[in-house]
Amino acid sequence: MARIVFTGKDCTGCTICSLACAYAHDHEFNPAYGRIWVVKRQPATDYPVVCMQCAKPPCLNACRVGAITKREDGLVVVDAARCIGCGACVEACPFGAINLHPIKHVAIKCDLCGGREPQCVKFCPTKVLKLQAPTAIPRAKGVR
């Protein structure tokens, strides 16, 4: 399935993706609410981290209350009503792509904006984020 893919290397660390994401989900601005976030290290590392929508999601296996499910179309979703905010999924994710909302204390992760245009892709100023199936990446690389 298609997911948010980070291609190229020109992430600038501006966190506009997180801001747009936070607004799309919470109607408030704070990159900490973003379902996508940016690793920044000195002197020259910036890269976005976002859910890979794994085929065998470790977060799903770690969830003891069945709040995380994989839909038929492949999207991994969190049922906020069921989530108890324990953070077991956060520990299990090998990428750091799922986190607890600092105010709502439930697990938050990329839901591809629920079928709308993903806002991180729309706002990314360097256009390094794409909505793409990972299986299409090699072919895209091949023609570069």
């Binding site: 600038t12 660390g13 501006c14 966190t15 506009i16 020259a44 910036d46 100023p125 360097t126």
Partner: peptide, 17 residues
């Protein structure tokens, strides 16, 4: 030139490494 960086919320990215 090595890398572009940006301040918070800035699409212009005038910081260069």
């Amino acid at each position: 030139f090595m890398k572009n960086r940006a301040c918070f919320g800035c699409p212009i990215r005038c910081k260069k490494i």
